[in-house]
């Protein structure tokens, strides 16, 4: 039985530790800076100034959110093992799955807080320049949050068994690949070779497609966003996180802490 009390105790301690990390503030600073710089960039262009501004803003939010998840996230479990704080925690009636879940949620709350700060910066900049703001932007930012929840789960999975260095490389690799598999598949489909066609199709199917969480284009062009364009990625994200965390838990259960 997973106890919400124990998981939340670990999550809140994880949050406390994560927000002490200076890397987080450096990344947040540059994220907010880039969102602000959008004003300058958009003012240089007479056409589509608002769109450039918001495109830069939403992309910065997604990219720096992922960077924080990767660089702050991968160290957290390792640190507990390395400093042996995990010994006392696991000697309590805390299962390894609860520990992992607490770490995940603590980190997720940290990242979402950063997203909220960057979203606030985005809103301020949009209002200041008179760029339009509507539900589409909210949906785009919401799904960016879901995408980051997936990235945090990936970071947790990798750091459940490898060093922070490798975990950050793997997670960053996963992030990049997760954004190109759709393009690769489209390129592959146009290929003459059946091998390439099937290979790229499989790659796209097997790895989470992070582009499905990207509503930037719809938001900045004020295109209509149907409910299923939000709900399906949401469901997809939750399922993906479930699978990733279950795998992390199986790996973590088997580990020796020495």
């Amino acid at each position: 039985m997973i106890s919400p009390g124990r998981v939340s105790a670990i999550a809140s301690n994880t949050f406390r530790e994560a927000v002490r990390n200076r890397v987080l503030y450096a990344l947040l600073f540059f994220g907010v800076l880039l969102i602000g710089v959008g004003i300058v960039v958009s003012s240089l262009s007479y056409v589509e100034g608002d769109r450039i501004l918001q495109s830069v803003g939403l992309s910065s939010l997604r990219l720096f959110g992922a960077a924080i998840a990767i660089f702050v996230g991968v160290g957290l479990i390792h640190k507990e093992v390395d400093r042996r704080t995990i010994y006392t925690i696991l000697s309590k009636p805390v299962s390894r799955t609860e520990f992992l879940l607490g770490k995940y949620l603590g980190l997720l709350v940290t990242i979402w807080l950063q997203v909220a700060i960057m979203a606030a910066a985005f809103v301020v900049v949009s209002l200041a320049t008179g760029a339009p703001l509507d539900g589409g932007h909210a949906a785009a930012i919401g799904l960016a949050g879901i995408e980051l929840a997936v990235v945090v789960a990936v970071a947790t999975l990798f750091s459940s068994f490898t060093t922070p260095m490798l975990a950050s490389l793997f997670t960053a690799g996963f992030y990049v690949v997760g954004h190109v598999t759709r393009d690769l598949r489209e390129l592959g489909a146009a290929s003459e070779s059946a091998w390439v066609q099937q290979g790229t199709w499989l790659l796209h199917r097997a790895l989470p497609d992070l582009e499905s969480f990207n509503l930037t284009v719809q938001a900045i062009h004020q295109l209509e966003i149907r409910p299923d364009q939000v709900l399906l990625p949401l469901l997809y994200g939750v399922l993906t996180i479930g699978v990733l965390m279950a795998a992390a838990s199986v790996i973590f259960e088997r580990r020796d802490f020495r």
Binding site: E17, R84, Y87, T88, L90, S91, K92, V94, S95
Partner: peptide, 17 residues
């Protein structure tokens, strides 16, 4: 893991938060 509510542990050279 549930029975661990009845035991306590102090590791060697512990590090704490």
């Amino acid at each position: 893991s549930a029975f661990r509510r009845h035991i306590g542990f102090l590791p060697e050279n512990p590090y704490f938060y």
